[in-house]
Amino acid sequence: MLELDRNLRIQDISGATEFSPFRVGILPVPGFALMSYACTVEPLRAANLLSDSKLYEIIHFSSGGPVPSSGAALIERTSWPGGAEDIDLLLVVAGGDPFAFDDAAILEWLRLLDAQGVRIGGVSGGSVILAMAGLMEGRRMTVHWEHAAALSEIHPDCLIERRLYVMDRDRVTCGGGTAPLDLMHALISSQWGGGFARLVSDWFLHTDVRAAADPQRGTLAERLGSNSPHLVEAVSAMEDHIADPLSLSQLAMVAGVTPRHLNRLFAERLGRSTMAYYRAMRLDVAQRLIKNTPMSIAEVSEATGFVTSSHFSGAYRQNFGVSPRRGRQVE
């Protein structure tokens, strides 16, 4: 049995002289967000540094050459994917448009690792790729909030939770951004204790470690710039009813005010009428679906609550200056 002594040195209280590091495979997908990647691997590197021991071994997988990030960084491959692997955890790190991922060989390899008993996870858009591989059935999961609506449309059976990270048996999913810092804190804490995990987090000035259930976004009041409970209730209802829009009277009932009062609040605090704000919200969701998923125009129209594709196309053009089809081509 291994533990860290007071000097952060590895000792084996069972009497053995050697131990095997916890082997973490990283599969970066071209266009991955560098922030998500760094917050995933750097705590493991720091754990090795602070303990002066190889607690973790990181293996980078790629089916090609160096993998480009969304910025200028390239990640060098240390191993080829494809066969059985002697790893304890594999994390797929993806960003950009994970719905465009179409590497059938990688998807099959992920299934092979699952059959082999490897714990598998996704960071940011990596959770989308796990769903594509059919590995999230019956598992709770999370994904970056930008991809949540599209993933729900394409894989309606996915049990998506809007939180920082989810550990469900042999699956680990994380929203990306800085959330992997919190995930890695939990991982290191479970293996080497909370005291050592705190030292690793402090190494990165990560003094406010968040819980798994913490939200991915600021509170609705913060995003709106208003503490009006009536506005918060109305906008929250809008976000919950993108595909099945509520009427002005229904929104007013939820907010606990008259339709006229609600319109006045929206005009004063948010600069537009209630329903204009609602339509712009639905069109923003539509734009993300158009740019980031293979969904057809008709499917996007239905998913965002427009009665017909022609009505949707007209509203989209009026709001963004281009048709939905052109918007997809421009991207």
Score class of each variant (00 low, 15 high):
residue 170 D to Q: 12
residue 155 H to M: 08
residue 238 M to F: 12
residue 28 P to K: 06
residue 44 L to E: 03
residue 132 M to H: 03
residue 61 F to M: 07
residue 198 R to Q: 15
residue 281 M to Y: 15
residue 111 R to P: 06
residue 174 C to I: 01
residue 292 N to R: 15
residue 14 S to V: 09
residue 235 V to E: 00
residue 125 G to A: 03
residue 127 S to T: 04
residue 85 E to P: 09
residue 180 P to F: 00
residue 19 F to N: 01
residue 297 I to A: 09
residue 124 S to A: 13
residue 170 D to G: 06
residue 268 E to H: 11
residue 257 V to G: 01
residue 119 R to C: 05
residue 182 D to C: 05
residue 256 G to A: 04
residue 125 G to Y: 03
residue 141 M to T: 03
residue 34 L to S: 11
residue 237 A to K: 01
residue 148 A to F: 01
residue 317 R to C: 10
residue 217 R to A: 00
residue 89 L to C: 07
residue 222 E to F: 07
residue 8 L to C: 09
residue 299 E to V: 10
residue 212 A to T: 08
residue 114 D to F: 11
residue 210 R to Q: 03
residue 315 A to R: 12
residue 158 C to P: 08
residue 175 G to C: 05
residue 201 S to V: 10
residue 114 D to I: 08
residue 94 A to I: 02
residue 291 K to A: 09
residue 249 S to T: 15
residue 77 R to N: 12
residue 209 V to E: 06
residue 222 E to A: 06
residue 128 V to Y: 02
residue 197 A to M: 12
residue 52 D to C: 09
residue 81 P to C: 02
residue 81 P to F: 00
residue 208 D to Q: 10
residue 11 Q to E: 14
residue 254 V to H: 04
residue 136 M to T: 15
residue 90 L to S: 00
residue 109 W to V: 00
residue 92 V to Q: 02
residue 303 A to F: 07
residue 226 S to P: 10
residue 188 I to Y: 10
residue 296 S to I: 07
residue 155 H to N: 08
residue 39 C to H: 03
residue 89 L to W: 08
residue 192 W to Y: 15
residue 90 L to V: 04
residue 243 A to D: 13
residue 154 I to H: 09
residue 263 N to C: 05
residue 47 A to V: 07
residue 208 D to P: 06
residue 202 D to Y: 13
residue 18 E to H: 10
residue 101 F to R: 01
residue 65 G to R: 14
residue 119 R to L: 05
residue 228 S to Y: 15
residue 66 P to E: 12
residue 37 Y to D: 02
residue 286 A to V: 02
residue 104 A to R: 15
residue 246 L to P: 03
residue 192 W to A: 01
residue 285 V to S: 12
residue 211 A to I: 02
residue 262 L to D: 00
residue 133 A to S: 14
residue 283 L to E: 03
residue 250 Q to I: 04
residue 325 R to Q: 10
residue 253 M to W: 11
residue 23 R to T: 13
residue 23 R to I: 14
residue 150 A to V: 03
residue 23 R to H: 12
residue 98 P to C: 04
residue 35 M to E: 11
residue 179 A to D: 00
residue 87 I to W: 03
residue 220 L to C: 04
residue 321 G to I: 07
residue 46 A to T: 10
residue 53 S to H: 10
residue 263 N to L: 02
residue 93 V to G: 03
residue 163 R to P: 00
residue 112 L to Q: 12
residue 14 S to N: 12
residue 264 R to D: 15
residue 274 T to I: 08
residue 200 V to G: 01
residue 54 K to I: 08
residue 127 S to H: 01
residue 135 L to I: 02
residue 164 L to N: 00
residue 156 P to Q: 08
residue 68 P to K: 05
residue 211 A to H: 08
residue 131 A to H: 11
residue 102 D to V: 13
residue 288 R to A: 14
residue 251 L to W: 10
residue 169 R to H: 14
residue 174 C to R: 00
residue 277 Y to P: 01
residue 279 R to K: 13
residue 171 R to N: 07
residue 308 T to E: 12
residue 203 W to Q: 13
residue 84 A to W: 11
residue 31 G to Y: 09
residue 188 I to F: 11
residue 202 D to K: 14
residue 35 M to Q: 09
residue 242 I to Q: 05
residue 308 T to Q: 10
residue 260 R to T: 15
residue 30 P to L: 04
residue 186 A to I: 05
residue 286 A to R: 01
residue 184 M to E: 08
residue 286 A to E: 02
residue 273 S to W: 10
residue 88 D to R: 05
residue 223 R to H: 03
residue 4 L to E: 06
residue 32 F to H: 09
